[in-house]
Design a binder for these strands. Structure first.
Ligand SMILES: [Zn+2]
Length: 536
DNA sequence: CGACTTTGACCAGCGC
DNA sequence: GCGCTGGTCAAAGTCG
């Protein structure tokens, strides 16, 4: 959403509104977003109040902006007048032609830019729409099971609240600080997936561990979730400015120069969450880098503590100023495993091959946003609960999505083979194939892929990569490569109805597991295609 | 020649 | 204050 803000506008005091080109698009995009908002049940997730106010304040400008679309050319002409009016008046055909060409060029550029913006706005719209769908689905289920859930908007974000009055399993994804293990315990994964340790007996009631739970404790002071292990002590001391600086980075030790001022128009906490949300993909890969459809430029390499393999830093070069970065590092325990960590959202249209992964990243950000609802004070703070991932220990399991700290990170672990057996399974039919949901015990803090789907189902939907993804998935067994799972993600969720069915099934399975499993761990639902492995 | 990689320097945060 | 660490910068080198 960075692009929504456009560049600083210049506004004359004499009533003449002087809008530079980029700002014009910012306004226009704002308008588009407002339209979408009206169509999308007034749910705003990534918008914040400041944006809202800005947009409302711009409402007048929006119309102006639209008019500018037509008047722009004329006004552009008029602004060009100073230099060109004489030449225009010369009525030399060549000059006219040149002027027209310039105009056409500019319009082409504008068109491209608009396309990109529209694309993103559409994506955001679908994200919100599908998120709402999921929420409603879950609400349905909760009503079935007698647990009332109330969703409300807090600071522009959806929050669900159980109304039963009991301490119930809430959405649990603690993005906050975790108690740091002894230094020696920090394994090679620490730098990527947080100081994730083996978790997690401190989760309270085991039942609470079931599923899709997300929780966010709130404090009253700090906003920053960034590297919370490091900074939490300082939060109270920070003034607003310094806090805003903190939000501007991919990891934040420094204020990255590529962050444009427009980013700071976003509410710090929102931007923080979006920027800091990471998707870490663990996959077996011989090559030094997985191909994910994007163009990357390496800008650094470091030896990370605890891992003999160097960590490489890449930034997206598909568009100038794209804030997306990724880190690539091999797993110390198993060097065939490549750990790729993505952060940020692209500010440009993506090729189909890149959509799935980018969607996953933005979905993660979205999930983190929705799962870490600010309390009434509108603040999000790290806390010291769980959210440790077992993925760090390379425990054998399924492809999983997990939440881990200190960075809000969703880890997609693709290194584990599909299950050979399961205690429970459910089949789902879909034109793209038959999918089987498997249940396997999993430590409570790990969020499985389908759980994640149910959490932000549909986020991947309606993207261009779906068909490609589907065909990829036909060829490759699940859990084989990052591409496959991305593909599966796109393929499965490209059909909203199927997504809904998937979510319902997962919810139902989880519900059963809850009632059947007293001493339970978390449930891991693996999605597999029939035939890829045998399900009992 | 532009795009990319390599690599040492630099910076900020943190712990001692 | 100092050293460690993660992250970034930027000059020099490489490649097509
Ligand atoms: Zn990008």
């Amino acid at each position: 959403m960075d692009h929504l803000n456009g560049s600083p506008e210049r506004s004359g005091e004499d009533g003449k509104r002087v809008v530079n080109e980029l700002d014009f698009f910012g306004v226009k995009t704002g308008n588009l977003m407002m339209i979408k908002e009206k169509e999308s049940f007034h749910v705003k997730e990534e918008m914040n109040h400041r944006d809202d106010e800005r947009l409302q304040g711009m409402q007048l400008d929006v119309n102006t902006g639209l008019n500018l679309l037509t008047t722009n050319s004329s006004s552009d002409k008029s602004t060009l007048d100073d230099e060109t009016s004489h030449t225009m008046e010369d009525k030399h055909p060549t000059n006219k032609l040149a002027a027209l060409r310039t105009e056409i060029d500019r319009m082409s550029v504008e068109n491209e830019r608009l396309k990109g913006l529209l694309n993103q706005v559409n994506n955001n719209y679908h994200v919100l729409h599908m998120h709402l769908k999921t929420v409603m689905q879950r609400e349905k289920y909760n009503q079935k099971t007698g647990t009332a859930v109330e969703y409300k908007m807090i600071n522009g974000l959806l929050e669900d609240q159980k109304q039963s009055g009991v301490v119930v399993p809430r959405q649990f994804m603690d993005m906050g600080r975790i108690p740091l293990p002894e230094k020696d315990d920090v394994n090679s994964q620490s730098s990527f997936e947080g100081r994730s340790g083996i978790n997690c007996t401190n989760s309270g009631s085991p039942k609470n561990d079931i599923v899709e739970s997300m929780e966010c404790k709130t404090k009253t002071t700090s906003l920053s979730c960034k590297d919370s292990g490091r900074n939490d002590n300082n939060h109270g001391d920070r003034d607003e400015e310094s806090q805003e600086h903190e939000f501007s980075g991919w990891v934040s030790n420094k204020v990255p120069k590529f962050i444009s001022p427009k980013d700071e128009d976003q509410t710090p906490e929102t931007m923080s969450m979006i920027r800091k949300a990471r998707v870490s993909v663990r996959a077996r890969c011989e090559a030094s880098m997985m191909s994910d459809g994007c163009q990357w430029r390496k800008y650094g390499q470091k030896m990370a503590k605890g891992n003999p393999c160097p960590r490489a830093y890449y930034r997206c070069t598909m568009a100038t100023g794209c804030p997306v970065r990724k880190q690539v590092q091999r797993c110390a325990e198993d060097r065939t495993i490549l750990i790729t960590t993505y952060e940020g959202q692209h500010n440009h249209p993506l090729p189909p091959a890149a959509v799935a992964m980018a969607s996953t990243t933005s979905a993660a950000a979205s999930m983190l946003l929705s799962g870490s609802m600010p309390s009434a004070d509108g603040l999000v703070t790290p806390n010291n609960l769980l959210a440790r991932s077992t993925t760090a220990s390379c425990a054998p399991s399924l492809a999983t999505l997990s939440a881990s700290a200190p960075f809000p990170t969703v880890t997609l672990d693709l290194t584990r083979p599909p299950p050979t057996s399961s205690s429970e399974s459910q089949r789902l039919l879909h034109p793209q194939g038959e999918f089987t949901l498997n249940l396997q015990p999993l430590p409570h803090n790990v969020m499985s892929v389908p759980q994640a789907f149910s959490k932000f189902s549909g986020l991947h939907g309606l993207n261009n990569g779906a068909h490609l993804a589907a065909s990829q998935m036909q060829q490759t067994p699940m859990a084989a490569t990052a591409d496959t799972v991305s593909a599966a993600t796109a393929a499965i969720t490209s059909d909203p109805n199927f997504t809904a069915a998937l979510v319902a099934a997962i919810t139902s399975i989880i519900g059963n597991a809850k009632s059947n499993n007293t001493n339970n761990n978390n449930i891991n639902n693996a999605i597999t295609r029939s035939g890829d492995n045998n399900i009992n």
